[in-house]
Design a protein around this nucleic acid. Structure first.
Length: 260
DNA sequence: AAACTGTACAACCGCAGGCAT
DNA sequence: TATGCCTGCGGTTGTACAGTT
């Protein structure tokens, strides 16, 4: 038997999501919870593929998402983690629970990469600089373990704090409500009517809805405590951010991880 | 005021890994 | 063990909007 159609081209809508579709999706997930995305389009009546539904939920509608206005601290953390982990946006996002990997990736590509490009002439090819690859295997193991710990801690924390679906996803309803308010604002109705790009937080709508707006239960959630995070926290508090200290930083992580 | 250019971000695509059978 | 399906991830693209000429 062949794989059932998922993202086949027939009968599947593409492009920007409409408020109506968002509402349908959120309503469905409020009732059934996220997961089993394969049946979501069928059961909800959305003319979208399962991947599109999952993406929309995880990157946009999911409660607890903080969007726009990256703080200096967040940017520093992203830059540092990117240097450590490379373009593993999901891993990086695990250290910023309120941010999605897509958001971080976009922010990196549009802001941070340029910033770094201006600040330093170090090679930037999306992977670790050669000087850091000496002990790559070690760091890989250490960091991957740490990421695993972070993910577990995060999921446990969320599991503990997550009330029954109705309460949990109410914040998602708030998301939709705010989105709709934004769409209904003068000057944005056209975009909403045409599908537009949704409540895009481009410069025109900065500060309107989701800019730096945390909607959900994770408003003040902090990253799970792991050796790497402890290190990163201390690093962020450290005023000396010179690149020359990178090897010392590496040694610090290594010590923290008890790897050597 | 209009045209052009650059920026930001949502969404899509394809691949890989994990899991169930 | 092999196969098929589902989910997650990273790269890339399309488009709306802002700024500039």
């Amino acid at each position: 038997m062949g794989r059932p159609p998922c993202c086949d081209k027939e009968g599947v809508k593409k492009g920007p999501w409409t408020p109506e579709e968002d509402i349908i999706l959120v309503s469905y997930i409020q009732e059934h919870g996220p997961g089993n995305w394969r049946v979501v389009p069928t059961n909800s009546g959305l003319l979208r593929c399962s991947k599109s539904c999952r993406l929309r939920w995880t990157n946009y509608l999911r409660p607890g998402i903080k969007r726009g206005n990256f703080t200096d601290q967040e940017e520093k953390l992203i830059v540092h983690l990117q240097a450590l982990l490379g373009n593993r946006w999901a891993a990086i996002a695990s250290y910023l629970p309120a941010r999605t990997d897509n958001d971080i990736k976009n922010h990196w590509n549009t802001h941070l990469k340029k910033k770094l490009g201006n600040q330093e002439n170090a090679p930037e090819n999306g992977s670790r600089p050669s000087c850091r690859s000496v002990a790559k295997g070690r760091w890989e193991k250490c960091l991957q373990t740490d990421i695993g710990m972070a993910k577990r801690a995060l999921s446990e924390a969320l599991a503990v704090e997550r009330p029954p679906a109705a309460t949990s996803y109410a914040s998602s309803t708030e998301n939709i409500s705010r989105l709709l308010q934004s769409w209904l604002k003068p000057g944005r109705c056209g975009a909403a009517a045409s599908g537009g790009s949704g409540p895009s937080e481009s410069a025109s709508s900065q500060g309107s809805v989701s800019t730096s707006t945390v909607v959900g239960p994770n408003e003040d959630s902090s990253p799970p405590s792991t050796p790497l995070i402890s290190y990163l926290e201390s690093w962020l508090l450290d005023e000396d951010e010179s690149q020359g200290g990178f090897l010392e930083d590496m040694a610090a992580i290594s010590d923290t991880c008890n790897f050597l």
